[in-house]
């Protein structure tokens, strides 16, 4: 059962159409990445999901049995999280909890738990205006889940962070995706690959496709062998002879570090490895890779 199904969402600002007839489904207990280049309509989509923006046309269908005011079971973190600078971190958490309908006691308890998770215990009594970008982002995440939402919407949660902040946030998300559905937008595929199991690809206001991450990875391209050998006479002879092995379609790359393309990866892998051993070639690397999603992403976006 899907939490939310979007049917033909469109949103225009004046004459420009930021989102046109986007349809997608948000299932339960998974992490979905909304991937696309800048201007693809990711922020518009998330704002509509969060209820901050009304679609010009199209509709959202909510799972039956959930409150019609989706703000009760939804958490949202905008691209540039804004807080009241005069509040301390702890006050921000408690205010967020209380506004989401928690009792004073629950809110205080959840705040302590989440401040701990977000690594903000020491800074909890400082004013938010003095927080660093990374701390604000972690605070933003923590306050978005204070009421244990079923759905967590995150707009570019890691784009503005340094590598450490990025890792912290991704770790937090990884832990939470067992308890709730996370939808995050990003233009960095690598981040999406790290935590998400599903992908919605957007470009120019349209949903290009939606699919499971590993399915995409599999369908993204044929696997190929990457082989690297020590540079010497024997190796070069061996490399030249490789073409004779049946099943190899193409060899490209450098002389001692190259890719072998084939449609029968299992048999070719074995034959290449055997022949290398037989000929006494000193292997440096031997691996099976696939066309990366990155390449596929760039192609998909350019096609549209």
């Amino acid at each position: 059962m899907n939490l939310i199904t979007a049917e033909g969402l469109s949103r225009s600002y004046g004459n420009t159409e930021a989102l046109s007839k986007a349809s997608f489904a948000i299932g339960e207990q998974r992490c979905i990445a909304l991937l696309g280049p800048n201007g693809a309509g990711k922020t518009t989509t998330l704002s509509i999901l969060a209820g901050l923006l009304e679609p010009t046309s199209g509709k959202l269908v909510m799972q039956a049995g959930l409150s019609t005011d989706r703000r009760h079971w939804m958490g949202f973190l905008p691209q540039h999280p804004a807080f009241f600078g005069w509040m301390t971190g702890r006050e921000t958490m408690i205010t967020a909890g209380r506004l989401c309908g928690l009792t004073a006691k629950e809110a205080a308890k959840r705040s302590e738990e989440l401040l701990e998770t977000a690594g903000l215990v020491e800074a909890a009594n400082r004013r938010v205006s003095g927080y660093s970008g990374g701390m604000k982002q972690r605070l933003g995440l923590a306050q978005a889940v204070i009421h244990r939402p079923r759905l967590l919407l995150l707009d570019e949660p890691v784009s503005a962070l340094d590598p450490i902040g990025r890792r912290d946030v991704l770790t937090m998300l990884d832990a939470w995706k067992r308890e709730m559905t996370i939808v995050l937008s990003t233009h960095v595929l690598h981040d999406a690959e790290q935590v998400c199991d599903e992908l919605i690809l957007m470009n120019r206001g349209q949903v290009v496709m939606q699919g499971q991450m590993d399915e995409l990875r599999r369908s993204a391209g044929q696997p190929f062998l990457r082989v690297a050998v020590e540079e010497n006479e024997a190796s070069s002879l061996w490399v030249e002879g490789l073409n004779r092995i049946p099943g190899i379609l193409k060899i490209d790359g450098g002389k001692f570090d190259f890719h072998i393309h084939t449609d029968k990866i299992d048999s070719v892998r074995e034959k290449v490895l055997r022949s290398a051993l037989n000929e006494g070639v000193k292997l440096l690397a031997f691996e099976v890779s696939r066309t990366s999603l990155e390449q596929w992403f760039v192609e998909a976006v350019q096609q549209a």
Binding site: L52, H72, P78, G101
Partner: peptide
């Protein structure tokens, strides 16, 4: 953006 912060909550 603080108005949005308040209004995404119920």
């Amino acid at each position: 953006g603080t108005a949005a912060w308040v209004l995404v909550k119920p």
